[in-house]
Design a protein around this nucleic acid. Structure first.
Lengths: 243, 243
DNA sequence: TTGCTCCTCACGTCACGTGAGGTGGC
DNA sequence: TTGCTCCTCACGTCACGTGAGGTGGC
């Protein structure tokens, strides 16, 4: 009879799998050669080779070894089913990667718009992102992003400049003790509602999430200068203007 | 003076980074605390914390530690540039994943069409895929796939059944010693050209790749029964029919 | 003195790559 | 006897998690 078995080196040469890999598969019990010589040399037989092909195929498709091991141990496994399962997993991974992409794009966008691209700016942006992810759902973030695209870069910058001015004006009236029902304050309240609406796009869910964020993040109130007293003041003004 | 430094536990609690991770960053020199007490306790100062935030941010974005280390060592690094670079890389990864997806879909398609979904079928399909990738460029594979979608599942199955019949008929004429210029053989040659054309879509590059594959892969000729003699026979018939 | 926090090893993870040092068969 | 192939350790990879066993400060 001719060659009835293969030695590691031969097998490695023919399959393109390294000797070390074959040793490793033997070591972890994934693929033990059918026979070992007295000197400890590995002798692989035909069924071993078929098994190796399956292992190699599944590895090429990105399966981890322990899963491959699991498939091979189950007698009636269906390659088709396995592949479908794997497909679903990879699609999920792609989804995650794409989310990361969107996140990076958003950050790049913010940093690009900012005049200073310092490390502090970067940290601040990352913190803001994390906070947004905490208070807004995935869908809401999507909507906000679309909304940003609709209103455009220039308008975003205008609004960003407008907010501090408006807040300062409101603070001034509060300090003067002006009544919320005063026409001047009602005017401020209308401008306020306009800016809010421009951000939320009229979506009340988003408006609610914003409110929750302001209530629970002291840092945000501190930075913007909007505290609970101011929120109440504006609410009262808005309410009295409706009457 | 109040708290001018943080101990590991405090820092861990505030940043959400594990103590072990902080130890590790110290160990690899990524983030050494500014000071260590006589008892070896780590004391982190404000600049350390800022650095940690940057590290954490970049980690969240999926950067490996050695790259982060590289950025931090370069004094004038720009976060924006770093992020753009990373974006490009992730997009590449997604591309690779999507290619794998397409591959898996193709395999699933073949296995789904096959009546037997045995391990051997699977191995065969994988080998065929690998071989195709060897002889056809990425663009050609794309084109073949589109072409498959155009002609449809049913027609593919018909063609797959037609080939062995045609090959058997040609072989029979060859065995009988029929001259290639004979009308019967010319008829077979026309049918042959039709099937080839249906696969290549008339693209001569693809036809050439197919020819190369048949020349260099003895297994393919063996399985289909198309050897060089048959190729020549059909060529002659085609040539004489043109006259 | 008792907790709490801190410390330093050191193994484990995943799938091998890469030597080192030594042996078996033609 | 000389190459060639084979063998078995065993470290290194990446970014920590998870104990083990022991010490310092309020």
């Amino acid at each position: 009879m001719r060659q009835t078995f293969w030695k590691v080196g031969e097998l490695a040469r023919e399959t393109g799998i390294s000797i070390r890999t074959l040793h490793y598969y033997d070591e972890i019990g994934l693929l033990r050669p059918s026979h070992k010589s007295s000197a400890g040399h590995r002798h692989y037989a035909a069924p071993d080779i078929e098994k190796l092909q399956i292992i190699r195929s599944l590895r090429q498709l990105g399966f981890p070894l322990n899963e491959i091991s699991g498939f091979l141990d189950r007698p009636g496994w269906s390659p088709l089913e396995v592949i479908r399962l794997h497909l679903a997993r990879i699609r999920e991974q792609i989804e995650v990667q794409q989310q990361l992409c969107r996140k990076l794009e958003a950050i790049a966008g913010v940093l690009d718009r900012a005049q200073t691209v310092s490390a502090e700016e970067f940290i601040g942006t990352m913190e803001a992102m994390t906070m947004f992810e905490k208070y807004f759902s995935k869908e809401q973030l999507e909507e906000l992003k679309e909304r940003g695209a609709v209103v455009g870069e220039d308008r975003i910058r205008e609004v960003e400049a407008e907010w501090p001015r408006l807040i300062a004006e409101v603070r001034a009236e509060m300090d003067k003790g002006t009544d919320p029902s005063d026409a001047k304050v009602q005017d401020l309240a209308r401008r306020w509602a306009g800016l809010v609406n421009e951000f939320t796009g009229g979506n009340p869910e988003i408006a609610r999430s914003v409110a929750t964020m302001y209530r629970q993040e002291p840092d945000v109130s501190a930075k913007t200068g909007i505290d609970s007293a101011m929120s109440e003041y504006i609410s009262k003004a808005a309410a009295s203007s409706k009457k």
